Deep mutational scan, measured.
Amino acid sequence: DRMTSQEAACFPDIISGPQQTQKVFLFIRNRTLQLWLDNPKIQLTFEATLQQLEAPYNSDTVLVHRVHSYLERHGLINF
């Protein structure tokens, strides 16, 4: 699994950072998509996403918020 070119453009700090940071991003992105796909008729809020993310992935709330906002803005969740 890899970041898309659009994700890389929107998250230059992640793509240029350590490999582990990219893996954390990918986990948060994929898990958020999975959470929404589990029940697409219900809006997936940032707060609900954060509550359902497993530790330690829920510890970087800023990154979780950025990923959630990106997915929502680009019509990948909550459409």
Results as ranks from 00 to 15, higher is better:
61 T>I: 05
44 L>R: 03
61 T>Q: 14
42 I>Y: 09
64 V>C: 10
30 N>C: 05
34 Q>T: 08
50 L>I: 09
73 R>F: 06
24 V>E: 15
39 N>M: 06
31 R>Y: 08
29 R>G: 02
72 E>L: 04
49 T>V: 15
48 A>E: 10
40 P>I: 04
65 H>P: 01
50 L>R: 06
16 S>R: 10
38 D>F: 05
71 L>K: 00
39 N>A: 09
21 T>Q: 14
77 I>C: 00
2 R>F: 06
55 A>W: 14
32 T>F: 05
51 Q>W: 07
45 T>S: 11
14 I>S: 01
34 Q>F: 03
44 L>M: 04
4 T>G: 06
65 H>G: 14
18 P>K: 11
75 G>N: 13
11 F>Q: 01
65 H>W: 10
1 D>K: 15
72 E>G: 06
35 L>H: 03
56 P>T: 05
77 I>G: 00
43 Q>E: 14
19 Q>A: 14
16 S>G: 11
71 L>M: 08
57 Y>F: 09
58 N>F: 04
56 P>V: 03
28 I>K: 03
21 T>P: 07
60 D>F: 09
13 D>Q: 04
60 D>N: 10
5 S>G: 10
41 K>I: 12
4 T>R: 04
77 I>D: 00
36 W>S: 07
3 M>D: 01
35 L>W: 05
56 P>C: 04
11 F>P: 01
51 Q>I: 07
59 S>V: 13
32 T>W: 02
79 F>I: 06
23 K>H: 10
75 G>W: 06
59 S>Y: 10
24 V>K: 06
61 T>W: 09
56 P>K: 07
13 D>I: 00
60 D>V: 04
8 A>D: 05
19 Q>I: 15
47 E>D: 14
59 S>R: 12
20 Q>W: 13
42 I>P: 10
25 F>Q: 00
46 F>P: 14
19 Q>D: 11
56 P>D: 05
8 A>S: 13
3 M>W: 07
76 L>A: 07
39 N>V: 03
44 L>T: 03
55 A>Y: 09
11 F>K: 00
71 L>W: 00
4 T>A: 05
26 L>R: 08
73 R>Q: 15
4 T>L: 04
23 K>P: 04
62 V>T: 15
15 I>C: 14
27 F>E: 13
60 D>H: 07
49 T>F: 04
39 N>H: 15
47 E>W: 10
12 P>C: 04
52 Q>V: 09
6 Q>K: 10
10 C>N: 14
68 H>N: 03
25 F>D: 00
24 V>F: 14
57 Y>V: 07
78 N>T: 00
48 A>L: 09
66 R>K: 11
9 A>C: 05
44 L>Q: 02
62 V>P: 09
12 P>T: 07
36 W>M: 04
43 Q>G: 08
12 P>H: 07
62 V>S: 15
58 N>S: 10
6 Q>A: 13
14 I>G: 00
70 Y>H: 05
4 T>Y: 06
63 L>F: 07
78 N>M: 01
5 S>C: 13
72 E>S: 08
60 D>R: 07
73 R>S: 15
67 V>T: 04
75 G>I: 03
25 F>A: 03
6 Q>W: 07
15 I>L: 10
13 D>C: 02
34 Q>I: 05
18 P>R: 08
40 P>H: 08
19 Q>T: 11
56 P>A: 04
61 T>R: 15
44 L>D: 01
22 Q>L: 13
70 Y>R: 01
18 P>N: 12
33 L>A: 04
47 E>R: 08
8 A>G: 14
47 E>G: 08
24 V>A: 15
34 Q>C: 06
78 N>G: 01
41 K>W: 11
22 Q>D: 05
29 R>I: 01
33 L>T: 09
71 L>D: 01
37 L>V: 10
36 W>A: 08
16 S>F: 08
53 L>M: 08
57 Y>S: 04
54 E>N: 05
40 P>Y: 04
66 R>A: 07
1 D>S: 07
50 L>E: 05
49 T>L: 14
78 N>P: 00
74 H>F: 14
8 A>H: 09
27 F>P: 00
67 V>C: 05
1 D>G: 08
74 H>E: 15
38 D>K: 15
14 I>L: 08
